[in-house]
């Protein structure tokens, strides 16, 4: 596991993916700098009635919402960057090198998947934390519960990793991995309107199909809402988006391992 983790870090550094994350982080920090005046403006407009406590109460939900979007951007780039890693690992000439090592295929695949998740996911989270740290320092809105938001996004990235892992094993192509991730994203986006779709369709078969798909397909959009609620301390009405999405990821990981173990290279 540590060998694959080191290799994934070396690959990340070599491919200079971190530069993309650095550029996004710098752009976000620039936006934070430009928003410097908001706090004074907010206090002035309230006629001096708002103190630090009130300001935190008013800005925190907004900041959590913004950081939910920020993390979505980082996760999007992490998925793009990670989509080609498994297909590259399984290229002819390279797969043989790895598969001839005294490591089981399950260990090899799980080691690589966990490495991708940890290395790319943590890079996204660290970048998010840097931007949040600066924002919190500038606006005085630091809240430790934001960690929960980052934790939910790490889990969301795990779901995307399961999609690109299975597609990577099945098709051996970065383009197909990205296409699979985009398809799942589109499906979950459309299915987030499942209630509206079933009302419009007024057909029992469509109702059943849409509702079934809703439960099966990961609900990353709703996980984002859940993350914001956790970050601002609002009650969570349903954990379904989280556990059903994680279940989806587990099933995909299972099929990825099953397929990898059966394949000839």
């Amino acid at each position: 596991m540590s060998a694959l983790l080191r290799d994934t870090v070396a690959e990340l550094i070599n491919r200079k993916i971190f530069i993309v994350f650095l550029v996004i982080t710098l752009l976000l920090l620039l936006m934070v700098y430009l928003s410097w005046g908001i706090r004074e403006d907010f206090t002035a407009r309230s006629g001096g009635e708002f103190g630090a406590e009130e300001l935190l109460g008013s800005l925190a939900p907004w900041v959590a919402e913004v950081f939910s979007r920020v993390m979505s951007v980082y996760i999007f780039f992490a998925v793009l960057a990670a989509a080609g890693l498994l297909p590259r690992m399984l290229e002819k000439g390279r797969a043989e090198f790895l598969l001839s090592q005294p490591v089981s295929r399950t260990q090899l695949l799980l080691g690589k998947i966990l490495s991708i998740w940890l290395v790319y996911g943590l890079m996204a989270v660290i970048c998010g934390l840097i931007v949040y740290g600066v924002t919190a320092a500038v606006h005085g809105v630091f809240d430790t519960r934001i960690i929960l938001l980052f934790a939910v996004y790490m889990l969301e990235f795990l779901i995307w990793v399961s999609v690109i892992a299975l597609a990577g094993i099945l098709f051996g192509s970065a383009a197909w991995s990205m296409t699979a991730a985009f398809t799942v994203w589109l499906a979950q986006y459309l299915l987030s309107y499942h209630e509206g779709i079933t009302q419009l369709a007024s057909n029992r078969f469509v109702d059943y199909a849409v509702e079934s798909l809703y439960y099966v397909i990961p609900k990353t959009g709703e996980m984002g809402d859940l993350a914001v609620r956790l970050a601002i301390g609002r009650p969570v009405h349903s954990w379904l988006p989280l556990w059903s999405s994680l279940l989806f990821a587990l099933v995909l990981f299972y099929f990825a391992i099953w397929s990898f173990r059966r394949r000839d290279y």
């Binding site: 000439g93 043989e96 090198f97 001839s100």
Partner: peptide
């Protein structure tokens, strides 16, 4: 206790 040099190896080129 085995070692293998594949045909036309494509070792990780970032290493």
């Amino acid at each position: 206790r085995t070692g293998f040099l594949p045909e036309n190896p494509r070792f990780p080129d970032h290493l």
